[in-house]
């Protein structure tokens, strides 16, 4: 079955892709920090950041339409939370706009970082920068199995839909919940099998290089 590949532009050759992942992580996190720490209302600084973003997008050679599509997925949620700012007592509109700009720019930053870096490289960089190894190990396992488990879920859903053609109401919800229950049991059993297979290959709680 088809999946959206998360790091689909990590293979293309662009100046941003060739940078070392650690350097990229440090730079992008610093940029996000600068954006977040800027005082609301300093629109001059925001336009400078906007320029920086434009340069980075060009350097990354990631299609602009991809970045737009990805940002459009989250921006409704950002807007929903930002709407609260309009009720703020001091400078509602200005605060609303500043926060919206900050969020959108941070989102573009993260999209660029993740789109141009392979996920495994990203995790390695996090680990070298002090993220606990156990977390990065779990995350790399998760990344590997998202596709497998998603596939299983999609197959179950397809099978269900071909039998019941849509369906609605409580019965439908119950069928979907049973599906999740089955998925949990299968995933748990898969995890046990994976663990045993790892043991058979000499796993002792640590992944060796």
């Amino acid at each position: 079955m088809r999946h959206v590949y998360l790091d689909q532009y990590s293979q293309i050759s662009s100046p941003l892709n060739r940078l070392s992942p650690i350097f990229k992580v440090v730079t992008f996190v610093t940029v996000v920090l600068f954006i977040v720490l800027t005082r609301p209302g300093s629109f001059f600084a925001f336009s400078l950041y906007g320029l920086l973003m434009a340069v980075l997008v060009l350097l990354s050679r990631v299609p602009v339409i991809f970045i737009l599509k990805r940002s459009l997925l989250v921006i409704p949620f950002v807007l929903a939370i930002a709407a609260f700012n309009l009720f703020s007592s001091h400078g509602g509109i200005q605060l609303f706009l500043s926060i919206l700009i900050k969020s959108c720019m941070s989102i573009v930053c993260l999209i660029l970082l993740v789109a141009t870096t392979r996920f495994s490289e990203l995790l390695k960089a996090f680990e070298k920068l002090g993220c606990p190894k156990i977390i990065t190990m779990i995350m790399s396992f998760m990344y590997r199995y998202i596709f497998v488990i998603e596939d299983e879920l999609m197959k179950m859903k397809q099978a269900k839909e071909s039998r019941s053609v849509g369906g609605s109401g409580f019965f439908h919800a119950k069928a979907l919940a049973n599906m999740l229950g089955t998925l949990f049991i299968r995933s748990y059993e898969r995890a046990e099998a994976v663990y045993l297979a790892m043991c058979a290959r000499g796993f002792d709680g640590d992944v060796k290089k």
Binding site: M137, F141, I146, S187, A191, V194, M198
Partner: peptide, 10 residues
């Protein structure tokens, strides 16, 4: 590690 990884994916 394997259990938490697969459960997170779930």
């Amino acid at each position: 590690v394997p259990l938490m990884g697969v459960m997170s994916a779930f």
